[in-house]
């Protein structure tokens, strides 16, 4: 059981590191949000799963509540970041932008 816990916690750490590398490697704002903003709940879930096998009932309950709160609230923040970037920067690198054309159409 200890080995499983260690492996899971190491895996969670690895996901977080990969997200950090993604922040440096991707060159657009959107892609960076994909790497950093959304790998973090996964990294947290995996790490918490590993930790919960060692923490007993009380610790597991707290981790579960933290996980639910994070999973429910983080997408809202990420969505706002996406929208803020879309409103303030030109999306020249996008292969298609249905939102920009819909907004242009709504203006006329």
């Amino acid at each position: 059981m200890t080995i499983v816990a260690h492996l899971l916690m190491a895996l969670g750490g690895l996901i977080a590191v990969l997200a950090g590398v993604g922040l440096l490697r991707f060159d657009t704002n959107y892609a960076r949000f994909h790497a950093a903003g959304k790998a973090s709940p996964v990294a947290f879930l995996v790490t918490a799963l590993g930790a919960s096998t060692q923490l007993g009932w009380g610790g597991t309950a707290r981790l579960a509540i933290a996980a639910v709160a994070m999973v429910l609230t983080l997408p809202v923040g990420v969505h706002l970041l996406f929208r803020a970037v879309h409103r303030t920067t030109a999306g020249d690198h996008l292969a298609a932008d249905d939102l920009a054309s819909a907004e242009r159409a709504a203006r006329y």
Binding site: Y30, V42, H79
Partner: peptide, 17 residues
């Protein structure tokens, strides 16, 4: 739906009408 879609890396909701 917005939460479920945005949670998964690779897809994200930019705006919803």
């Amino acid at each position: 739906l917005i939460v479920a879609i945005t949670l998964t890396p690779g897809t994200a909701v930019v705006d919803a009408d």
